[in-house]
Write a protein that binds this DNA or RNA. Structure first.
Length: 595
RNA sequence: GGUUCGGUAGCUCAGCUGGAUAGAGCGUCAUCCUUCUAAGAUGAGGGCCAUUGGUUCGAAUCCAAUCCGAAUCACCA
């Protein structure tokens, strides 16, 4: 149990016992003591002054004395300042903690709890390569899955590929017309980029046709509908749905190019999935559910025989779930997919990593699932993340301001290489080792940059700042790890038992600061899982690195004042490396032994 | 117009289940490598926490209103 939790429980018990006043543990407020006062944690007394009709000083003294008497292993002393009961945690407690963490290679991880959780993320379209926004999605999804695993859940990572629809047909039409049989191989282009290029070519051609029609006197609306290339695209979609062999074949070929490209990107950025779903196989799902919904009177039919749900009672609108021609819409598919996945994975909780532009859609989806009483409906969570914008504003494909994922990763690796070469610390590395290191650092910088911000918030990607390797960055944390490892290599392993001769030794402030920080790790991991928020861990891991660096600059480990101190500091350093490694791992970031 | 989210240092962000003098990083200025990795450390400077009112012992945090910004409200996906 965490120190804070122990203090809360002890304080609640004290108040109950001393004043015969039962109080919820959660009602006790405990903060870190400000550095200028003596103590580690402070119990806020104001809340009870009124209820217990005693002055803060009186309360503090009585509660403090009780706590010391009944929790002598935890609490060494206390003092009261302006309504705050400052508690000094016993040095022995911290020393013991150092041993416990040192001997637990899974420190921060929880035992399996048997809960099954499905995480859906990435979900690309097959007409365009991945961009910066997809990277945020992929890093968030992968990380939240790891964080949930670390908290003992069984996690299933899934991905739904949007591989059908008009947008795909656009690329196909453009390829037919403009490619002259070119392939990714013949042009030496990555498959997803190759197909994306034809999507762009479609739009260029379409634009020209519309302009021509407008010049001939058509209205813009008519021109957009009547442009020959658009009509051809719509015909192609119909042919696809009818299963016309040559269209299906082209569709399969072009999609296979895209998957080839995506596969490479996923491998580079470390995304993986337990199960891939393809919309082409799923878009008919949910038809049965429409029937079921009608029977349950959750849905109703309008006179044109389209099917709707009325969500005005929930403050939303009426929503179409089936067109009058009997075809299903986007949301119907999603309902079907939700049910199907529940049957496959039996996950009580499903987390959908989807941009905040779909907040409304996800709200509707959950509501409908609940009204249909689908199992697992209450466990649907939308991990809604904000858009990634550039300093100049939103990325727009039409204006060519989209930051391509592959380009960005490549640029990060190059900067990692350049920086590493400048510093010249790993001149003895082999070619393979060097490439591995550039990958670790470059990708680490990128992942950390995208994960260190609260997912809910939109963020600004500043190319200048993101490639900074100093301060609140991935490489800073990685560097700290490498630094610790370097020290550990130069010393024999630390003692795994209680270091003799330390019981009476006062911990130095910086030694204690590091231990206090390390002790928070399990709490932070749990918080990050509960809030679906990897940024909590990024911030935490940075704090650990920072505090260690302060400690390191002040106190020598190798040449400590005594052998006992040396052992303790080796333990502390080892624990820091361990916590940094584990914390970074759940963010999807490797840490090097040297850099 | 309705709904939702946001507005904290020059910039990027923490802090938001109310608690002590609002914190980091970047950038600026100044120190520290013959001693464990300087991708580091230390210090200085930088703030009407959008505005106004309310709730109370106490508000960046909760409530209301206002201003500014974003997303969304498709028989698109």
């Amino acid at each position: 149990m965490s120190v804070v939790q122990q203090i809360k429980e002890a304080a609640a018990k004290a108040i109950h016992q001393l004043y015969d006043f039962p109080i919820e543990v959660s009602a006790i407020a405990v903060n870190a003591t400000k550095p200028e006062f003596e103590g580690d944690y402070a119990v806020v007394l104001f809340a009870f002054v009124k209820q217990l009709k005693k002055s803060p000083d009186e309360l503090g003294n009585e509660i403090g004395a009780y706590l010391m008497q009944h929790n002598s292993n935890l609490i060494a002393s206390f003092n009261i300042v302006k309504g705050f009961l400052n508690i000094v945690v016993a040095n022995n407690y911290w020393l013991q903690f150092a041993q416990i963490a040192f001997n637990n290679s899974a420190y921060g991880m929880k035992e399996s709890n048997g809960n099954r959780v499905m995480v859906e993320y990435s979900s690309p379209n097959t007409n365009k390569p991945l961009h910066l926004g997809h990277l945020r999605n992929n890093f968030l999804g992968w990380s939240i899955a790891e964080i949930l695993k670390a908290n003992g859940n069984d996690v299933y990572k899934t991905c739904i590929v949007n591989d059908r629809g008009v947008h795909i047909c656009k690329s196909m039409i453009a390829w037919q017309r403009f490619a002259n049989g070119a392939t990714p191989k013949s042009t030496n282009t990555k498959g997803d980029h190759f197909v994306g290029d034809y999507y762009v070519k479609f739009n260029d051609a379409y634009k020209v046709e519309v302009e021509t029609l407008v010049a001939q006197g058509f209205t813009k609306d008519t021109a957009e509908k009547e442009a020959p290339i658009m009509k051809a695209t719509q015909q192609m979609l119909l042919d696809w749905e009818a299963g016309k062999p040559d269209v299906i074949e082209l569709w399969q070929t072009m999609n296979s190019w895209v998957y080839d490209g995506f596969g490479k990107t996923y491998q580079t950025i470390g995304s993986d999935f337990d199960k891939m779903y393809y919309e082409s196989e799923m878009y008919l799902l949910g038809k049965g559910l429409v029937e079921k919904g009608l029977q349950k009177n959750v849905f109703y039919t309008k006179e044109d025989s389209s099917v709707w749900i009325d969500l005005t009672g929930e403050g939303l609108d009426e929503k179409l779930v089936q067109r009058k021609d009997g075809t299903s819409v986007y949301i119907t598919q999603d309902i079907g997919l939700a049910e199907q996945r529940y049957q496959e994975f039996n996950a009580a909780e499903s987390i959908y990593v989807i941009g905040d532009e779909q907040n409304y859609h996800m709200k509707v989806l959950k509501l409908i699932c609940q009204k249909l009483q689908l199992p697992g409906a209450n466990g649907i969570h939308h991990l809604s993340y904000g858009m990634v914008e550039l300093p100049t504003g939103r990325m727009k494909s039409r204006e060519g301001t989209v930051v391509d994922a592959d380009d960005l990763v490549k640029a990060m690796l190059q900067i990692a290489q350049q920086k590493t070469e400048e510093l010249g610390k790993v001149k003895d590395f082999t070619e393979t080792e060097l490439n591995e290191l550039y990958h670790t650092i470059g990708l680490g910088a990128l992942k950390f940059f995208l994960l260190r911000v609260d997912p809910k918030k939109k963020m600004i990607f500043n190319p200048e700042e993101s490639i900074d390797f100093h301060g609140f960055t991935g490489p800073f944390v990685q560097y700290t790890h490498a630094r610790i490892k370097s020290i550990l290599r130069k010393n024999e392993a630390a003692s795994t038992t209680i270091v003799p001769g330390l019981n009476d030794t006062t911990l130095l402030p910086l030694e204690k600061d590091v231990l206090v920080q390390l002790e928070l790790f399990p709490t932070i991991i749990a918080e990050a899982a509960a809030e679906h928020d990897p940024s909590k861990i990024a911030i935490y891991v940075f704090n650990v690195a920072q505090i260690f660096n302060s400690f390191y600059s002040q106190h020598s480990i190798t040449n400590a004042e005594s052998e006992a101190k040396k052992q303790l500091r080796l333990q502390i350093a080892t624990n820091c490396a361990q916590v940094i490694k584990t914390g970074m791992k759940v963010l999807g970031i490797q840490v090097p032994e040297r850099m």
